[in-house]
Each structure stands twice: as structure tokens, then as C-alpha cells.
Computed example of a mutant assay.
Amino acid sequence: MRKSQKKRLIVGISGASGVIYGVRLLELLKSLPDEEKVETHLIMSRAAEVTLAHETSLKVRDVEALADVVHANKDIGASVASGSFRSLGMIIAPCSMKSLAEIATGVTDTLLSRAADVVLKERRRLVCMVRETPLHSGHLRNMLALSDMGAVIAPPVPAFYAKPETIEDMVDHSLGRTLDLFDLDSGTVHRWKDGESR
């Protein structure tokens, strides 16, 4: 009898502003109850490492310590670059317009974009938490192209009905809704019910 397959999720952090989304995502995944535990595979771009230094006091090693497995973005021979690597899919948080364009056009010369391409071709779930504003038509065309391929475009838009009191509240709610797409309950979503959030 085969052992049950371990659930695995790929987390990409690109260089867009909002690196806290990727960091907090790893924290939430680490704190899931045992019955929902997933093995996290982290890929950080070089630009993400630069953004991390600008936006937080964290070091790259601090972020890497939150993941179960860390892959170098230049390692295009890593396990997550193969369709034979079984996973629930991938979340890119945040997703830069550069990474979005690479994935949308299939020009995947980094592990982050290659892993996303593989997730799409294997018909697994790819969620891109795009971070840019305003958007020009090229950005929008790339988003449409990815949506047509099956990706979920999920900008981290605050839900004000949840009455957030801190930036952390807004980040947690957005990430909770993103994890909902993988049937993972982080416990951070204020759910709407009968005219009010719960």
C-alpha cells in the first residue's frame, strides 16, 4: 500500500514591494494545524532579497528558516522545475511585473518563473499576488494571458468590511483568502455572514 503523498506548496517571493506578504505567508503555513500541514518550497529572486533589506529588518536567512526547503533562483535543475514534482501549486507573493511577464510569455530563465510555468502546464493552481499601480496595458495583457492559462490573479486588496486595525490585519486577511484557494484555513479570514463579517 502506498504512503499518502505529502502536501507541498511552492512559495515564490519576487522583487515587488510588499515582501512582507511572502514572509508572512511562510509564517502562516508554518503555523497550520497538523492535519493541514504542508511542506513549503521557497524560491526568492535576487530582487526580493534587495526589497527585503529595504522594507524590513530581516535577513535572507531569517526568511529561509521559515521554509522547509529552499531553492536558489538560479538552480533551474531543482526538483520544483520538473512536472514530476507533485505539489498543490504555487503562490508568488508578491509577484512583480517582471516575473508576471516571464511567466505569461514562457520566457522562464529563472527557477521562480520556471516553477510557475511547470505548475501551469501540469494544471495545478498558480496564484500571483501582483503588486503594481497604476497598471498599463502591457501589465493588464500579461495578467489576462495568465488568467487564460488558468492562473489566479490575486492582488492583495484590503477588505475594509473586516475593519482592520493594523497593516498586519490587512496582510493576514489577504493571505488567508489566498490560502482559501488551496483549501487551507489560516484562521485569519474575517468571513462575511448575514450582513456582517465574522
Rank of each mutant, 00 (worst) to 15 (best):
I91W: 02
S96I: 07
I91F: 01
L42S: 08
L112D: 10
D117N: 13
H71M: 06
M97W: 02
A116R: 03
G83A: 09
A72M: 01
K59L: 15
G83P: 07
E49S: 12
V80C: 05
T105W: 02
S14A: 08
S45A: 02
V50F: 11
D34R: 14
K98P: 00
D34E: 15
L32T: 07
I13K: 10
S84F: 04
V80I: 15
G12F: 10
T108H: 01
A48I: 05
I91K: 01
V19E: 01
L25T: 12
M97D: 04
T110K: 08
L66Y: 10
V50N: 09
L26E: 11
T56L: 09
V107Y: 13
T108V: 12
A67K: 06
A65C: 02
I10W: 11
V23Q: 05
T110C: 06
K37E: 11
A47E: 13
A47W: 07
D75L: 13
K74Q: 12
A67D: 08
L88V: 09
A104V: 06
R86S: 14
A47H: 11
D75N: 15
I13S: 05
H54C: 05
K37F: 02
G83H: 06
H41T: 01
E36W: 04
A104F: 08
S45F: 03
T56Y: 07
A104Q: 05
R8T: 10
G83Q: 05
V60C: 03
L9A: 09
I92P: 03
H41F: 11
D117G: 02
Y21W: 06
K74V: 13
A47V: 00
G15F: 02
S87L: 02
A53K: 14
L100K: 06
D34S: 14
D62I: 03
V63D: 08
T108Q: 02
I103G: 07
I76E: 09
I91M: 09
T51H: 01
E27L: 00
E55G: 03
V118G: 04
R8Q: 14
D109Q: 13
R114H: 11
V70Q: 00
G89F: 05
T105K: 05
S57N: 14
I10N: 10
L100G: 06
H54G: 00
E27W: 00
L25V: 12
L42Q: 08
G106L: 04
D34H: 09
A116D: 06
K7I: 00
T51V: 15
S84G: 03
V38I: 08
T108Y: 01
P33V: 05
R8P: 00
T108L: 00
D117M: 03
L9D: 09
A48H: 05
I103S: 06
A53E: 14
S96G: 06
L111A: 08
A65P: 01
S79W: 00
V19F: 01
I92C: 07
L58T: 01
G22V: 07
S82I: 03
M44W: 05
L9V: 10
M44T: 09
L26H: 10
K74M: 07
L9W: 08
I91A: 01
E55C: 04
T108S: 14
E35N: 15
V118S: 04
E39K: 11
V80H: 03
K98C: 00
P33S: 04
D117E: 13
A48S: 13
A81N: 04
L26G: 10
S57Q: 12
S17H: 02
E35V: 11
D117R: 04
L66W: 10
S113Q: 04
V60K: 15
D62N: 14
V70K: 08
V23L: 03
H41S: 01
